[in-house]
Simulated assay, not measured.
Amino acid sequence: MIVGLPKEIKKQEYRVALTPAGCSMIVQQGYKVVVQQGAGEGSGFTDEDYGAAGATIVIEASEVWAAADMIVKVKEPLQEEFEYFREGQILFTYLHLAAVPELAKALTDKRVTAIAYETIQAPNGSLPLLTPMSEVAGRMSVQEGAKYLEAFQGGRGVLLGGVPGVPPAEVIIIGGGIVGTNAAKMALGLGADVVVLEKNGDRMRYLDDVFQGRLRTLMSNPHNIANAVRKADLLIGAVLVPGARAPRLVTEEMVKTMKKGAVIVDVAVDQGGSIETVDRATTHENPIYEKYGVIHYAVANMPGAVPRTSTLALTNVTIDYILQLAAKGFQDTVKSNSMLALGVNTYRGAITHPQVAEAVGLPYTPLEGLW
């Protein structure tokens, strides 16, 4: 097995899918790693670091894609990378196909075996390869929201924690999963008044126990969301349905009721967004836009702003799967690993994940029917 590591080409994406330490683990197991020149620079890893780990360094992305049996990436391939696809090649990355149906079609047309980090799922429903980036994005959502609440950024001029005699900001978080929990942790640490809206009663009890009553929980329904949104200084969208488009929980009419200069951070933008006025993804270069007097932050690759932390965290959770695929091949690995099987989005020209198929408007074929 030859593992390929191309440089990410999404605008201002500085993460890389493997650290030199991860490459070393693959090479020590007897497999080859081909790395594109400069792939790790944005995360602080040099070509010399990868060379010392036993990787082969090549200049062009086309050389990596042509040589590799399995491509490992961070972000979904962009249009200019579609030409590199070939039948039977394994692509292991964050795909978020619900938001890019044209990529789903390209993968099926070229019969690529595409495994999405974000749909690999444990029996308890957790998403182990999405978790570290969700932790980063959740923490960053408060960091970025606090920045854009500053007056010279167009915000209300509100300090999250307030000061003695002045009330703190109201932070509303929709979704109490990994993103929402980490956002709450940061917001509470800065002294904000935090409300989390969640539809799972057990999850609300967990949050109440973990935070010892320091935040408030509300059942997520249209009435409660509308009331909470109206009061928000900072609104964070933190909902996810694995493989599917994010549900639109905050309507345009709700956003119109928000305070002028309030801030929205929609972490679900890479799955289409959970807030109706988040109608486009933004970049780290131009991260915000204003609508109805409200600042919208809609960067689709938030963890890319802290690439060193993100790359280390990502390799920690992907490396075991990469080693399994290298050692046993796709079919044997997937047949013996039900969690990884749920990560398979395309195989032999078919969409093999039901939520993805529904989201992109293509037929669903169970993976077991393609052996």
Results as ranks from 00 to 15, higher is better:
residue 17 A to T: 07
residue 211 F to L: 03
residue 352 T to D: 07
residue 237 G to F: 08
residue 323 L to N: 04
residue 148 Y to C: 12
residue 4 G to F: 00
residue 299 V to K: 01
residue 76 E to V: 13
residue 162 G to F: 05
residue 47 D to A: 09
residue 143 Q to K: 14
residue 298 A to Y: 06
residue 98 A to Q: 06
residue 68 A to Q: 06
residue 166 V to F: 08
residue 267 V to T: 05
residue 183 A to G: 11
residue 245 R to K: 15
residue 188 L to Y: 09
residue 215 L to W: 06
residue 170 E to T: 15
residue 299 V to G: 02
residue 207 L to V: 12
residue 153 Q to K: 15
residue 31 Y to K: 11
residue 45 F to M: 01
residue 109 D to G: 10
residue 271 Q to W: 07
residue 225 I to Y: 00
residue 50 Y to P: 06
residue 21 A to D: 15
residue 274 S to C: 15
residue 226 A to I: 08
residue 89 Q to Y: 03
residue 241 V to E: 11
residue 76 E to N: 12
residue 289 Y to N: 04
residue 234 L to E: 01
residue 102 E to H: 15
residue 109 D to Q: 13
residue 41 E to S: 12
residue 17 A to F: 00
residue 342 L to E: 15
residue 360 V to H: 02
residue 31 Y to E: 04
residue 11 K to P: 05
residue 279 D to E: 11
residue 183 A to M: 10
residue 286 N to I: 15
residue 209 D to T: 14
residue 368 E to P: 08
residue 182 N to K: 13
residue 291 K to D: 07
residue 289 Y to P: 01
residue 171 V to C: 01
residue 228 A to K: 03
residue 176 G to H: 01
residue 195 V to Y: 09
residue 57 I to C: 03
residue 354 P to E: 04
residue 67 A to E: 03
residue 323 L to V: 10
residue 14 Y to S: 04
residue 183 A to T: 06
residue 181 T to G: 09
residue 10 K to A: 12
residue 101 P to E: 10
residue 293 G to C: 12
residue 272 G to L: 13
residue 286 N to Y: 09
residue 114 A to E: 02
residue 27 V to N: 10
residue 98 A to P: 06
residue 232 A to Y: 04
residue 66 A to Q: 07
residue 210 V to S: 00
residue 96 H to E: 12
residue 101 P to F: 06
residue 203 R to Y: 10
residue 231 K to A: 14
residue 322 I to D: 01
residue 54 G to F: 02
residue 120 I to F: 07
residue 301 N to F: 02
residue 295 I to Q: 09
residue 324 Q to V: 10
residue 219 M to T: 10
residue 204 M to F: 04
residue 270 D to E: 14
residue 28 Q to T: 13
residue 67 A to Q: 05
residue 183 A to S: 14
residue 346 T to K: 06
residue 121 Q to Y: 08
residue 263 V to K: 02
residue 313 A to V: 07
residue 75 K to V: 15
residue 199 K to H: 13
residue 197 L to A: 09
residue 92 F to K: 01
residue 190 L to D: 06
residue 44 G to H: 02
residue 304 G to L: 05
residue 46 T to G: 00
residue 100 V to F: 05
residue 147 K to E: 12
residue 192 A to M: 09
residue 347 Y to S: 08
residue 327 A to R: 13
residue 332 D to N: 13
residue 55 A to S: 10
residue 328 K to A: 11
residue 234 L to Y: 05
residue 323 L to H: 05
residue 267 V to L: 07
residue 158 V to S: 03
residue 306 V to Y: 11
residue 38 G to D: 00
residue 212 Q to T: 14
residue 345 N to W: 10
residue 305 A to H: 02
residue 369 G to M: 09
residue 364 Y to N: 08
residue 160 L to T: 00
residue 136 V to F: 03
residue 56 T to P: 00
residue 357 A to D: 04
residue 242 P to L: 09
